[in-house]
Design a protein around this nucleic acid. Structure first.
Lengths: 153, 153
DNA sequence: AGGAAATCCTAGTGAAATACTAGGAATACA
DNA sequence: TGTATTCCTAGTATTTCACTAGGATTTCCT
């Protein structure tokens, strides 16, 4: 039940992007420098976020990324699902027509997985990027945010 | 964000155990036969559940396992945490004294991981084994539960 | 006593996923 | 034309997962 680095790094990157891309696009180089992430790896994450319609890209010199939607319309859930795939804790095969779990109707644990799934999604869908950006600004205002790169989550 | 087979199989096994161990201990052989699980693997899961104090074992012929607590005092959360370890989506190193995340105080994403963690734990802690046993009995009453083994979740 | 049925314990292992790295093509600004 | 960027595909070392294997120990039954 762990999130992979995709989700963890990607959320940090998007918060960073939301903070710095108000006027001009933000390059992968600058995000990865601030957040202490591998450029090449972050590149792949941004590509996924783009496919999911959360960011837009500007190619060429002076280019980079910007949010494709206002920060108060992008939820943590949108970000995590884009990067991690479905957040449900178990892939119940009950969906496929001929796929798998013939016991779907009599499967007791399925109820449990559904409940977990709902609670996770509800939680992540109600936290908006804009809110995290606010928090971040508050905290960086208080302390000099010099050592931000230490946080790997 | 997927549960491993440990949590999935283990929960099924414990539901099975709760149903069949009212009078006598239930052997791994019989659980794995009913649930269509590898005996050797299930053995390891039962060992973990024992360490966690959820089941007791009776050695020797005629032995097996019984619940160490009544089924209405064992939650799904107890089972999953015993088998999967902590359910928190990110191992924030903020706990260790000299361990890791120096940015803990200024870490924005930490808030997100905490919220997810809380919602997962709350959900799984309020579903009791006894309830799942009830559900299982209802469903097996309706249909002839012959094909139970097909469900791999 | 002796065998059968069970738990207990440690280690090994093939396959898959993870977390990157690498190389280069395409695009746009200056 | 050159430099800064995104874009795309493929390779790879490490780790984790999901078992399998071998045997020791305990207890019941005859």
């Amino acid at each position: 039940m762990k999130l992979s680095t995709k989700g963890r790094y990607g959320l940090r990157a998007l918060i960073d992007l939301a903070q710095y891309s108000e006027k001009t696009p933000v390059s992968i180089t600058s995000i990865s420098a601030r957040q202490n992430l591998s450029e090449r790896y972050l590149e792949q994450l941004m590509s996924m976020l783009k496919k999911a319609g959360l960011v837009r890209s500007v190619r060429g010199a002076g280019g980079g990324y910007v949010l494709a939607q206002p920060a108060d319309r992008i939820s943590v859930g949108d970000v995590l699902r884009a990067l991690e795939g479905s957040l449900e804790p178990v892939d119940c095969a009950g969906l496929d027509p001929e796929g798998g779990c013939k016991a779907a109707d009599s499967c007791v644990t399925k109820y449990v997985w559904q409940r977990i799934n709902e609670s996770i999604n509800q939680t992540v869908d109600e936290i908006m990027l804009s809110r995290l950006v606010e928090e971040s600004r508050k905290k960086c205002g208080a302390e000099s945010g010099a050592d931000r790169g230490d946080c790997r989550n």
